[in-house]
């Protein structure tokens, strides 16, 4: 078995809102191996972004709080770490890229400054060295004329270029884990293809593990080795990409795969999933998918199914297995 870089155990992150407590992450178990890309898929509001923000302890404060669980990263439990200690981990050992690079790059600084800042903050190098390294990084993310672009402000770059800058900034300190939260959702497909290829190449070169968060099953199939499916604050299934697409076990995963239109194999009619995503303030009892599940039976609305291991390391949380 390969070495684990991240192991999340029974993580619970709750958010207090005026309407009540949102159980955004409610008992998540997740593992990522070294140099692996894990896809975390789910619909909006299923808690996938909140899981990622919990790893870096960047969830909204003071509304948000990790109420239970452990996040073991490189041998230490991040839940126990102080804000001061997290400060040194963020950006150097774990870094993150977001969906909208316009709002995550500081508009009043040239893009080169951001990269130099990350480098000088976490490594013992002077500004001159950092400047050279930043140019090299921009070159690595295939930004043409990197010397010139160093001085550009974020608004002077296109969406795709901004995302490249974000990637350069995130990978500047060769992190062990890169968290990519819907990094291509705001981009056009032709640009998305460029960025996905780039992330894959750099990840291989830098030996970084990637937690790839997306709602797009197509993107998962093309970029990840393993995949975890999240529904209403819980992981319902996790497996290798091949196994999951070949033989999805959880009814939610199955339904998701039959409900999306596919470009390669057209269908006459889509099979939609009835109902809507549950409210995480008062999630349904038992299995959270049971009100929408076509194959529910007796225990589903009472007992909560646990993740159980199946053939080939395939994990699924469903009473049918």
């Amino acid at each position: 078995m390969e070495e684990l870089i991240l192991k999340i155990e029974n993580l619970k992150t709750y958010l207090k809102t005026p309407r009540g407590v949102v159980r955004a992450v409610d008992g998540v178990d997740l593992t990522i191996h070294r140099e692996e890309t894990l896809g975390l898929v789910g619909e909006s509001g299923c808690g996938k972004s909140m899981t990622a923000l919990s790893i870096l302890k960047l969830y909204p404060k003071p509304q948000g709080e990790i109420v239970a669980g452990h996040i073991y990263f490189d041998g230490q439990d991040l839940v126990e770490r102080s804000e001061e200690e997290m400060y040194h981990i963020r950006g150097s050992k774990i870094s993150m890229i977001f969906q909208e690079p316009m709002t995550s790059l500081d508009p009043v600084f040239p893009v080169g400054e951001g990269i130099i800042e990350v480098l000088t903050l976490h490594q013992k190098i002077d500004r001159q060295e950092a400047y050279q390294m930043a140019i090299e990084l921009l070159h690595k993310v295939k930004i043409p004329e990197p010397e010139r672009r160093m001085k550009y402000y974020p608004h002077q770059l296109s969406g795709g270029m901004r995302q490249r800058v974000m990637i350069a900034q995130a990978l500047a300190c060769k992190p062990l884990l890169l968290i990519a939260d819907e990094p291509t959702t705001a981009l056009d497909v032709t640009i998305q293809a460029q960025i996905l290829t780039l992330i894959n190449e750099l990840k291989r070169e830098m030996k970084t593990a990637v937690l790839f968060i997306t709602h797009d099953l197509g993107v998962v199939a093309e970029t990840c080795q393993r995949v975890a499916v999240m529904y209403a604050g819980k992981i319902v299934e996790s497996a290798s990409v091949e196994a999951l697409f070949e033989k999805p076990l959880h009814p939610y995963t199955q339904a998701l795969l039959t409900s999306i239109p596919r470009m390669d194999t057209p269908k006459k009619r889509l099979q939609p999933i009835p109902g809507t995503v549950p409210d995480l303030i008062q999630p349904p009892p038992g299995c959270r998918f049971h009100p929408r599940c076509p194959v529910r039976f007796a225990p589903c609305d009472q007992e909560e199914p646990l993740l159980k291991i199946q053939e080939g390391g395939h994990l699924v949380a469903c009473h049918r297995y």
Binding site: V189, T190, A193, Q194, G218, A221, E242, F245, M263, D264
Partner: peptide, 23 residues
């Protein structure tokens, strides 16, 4: 290029990507 860029939810299908240059 557009057609080749759309990710397909099936890991068995390995297509040739046509990567366009630039923006």
């Amino acid at each position: 290029a557009l057609l080749a860029s759309v990710p397909i939810p099936d890991p068995k299908i390995k297509r040739e990507r046509i990567l366009l240059e630039g923006d």
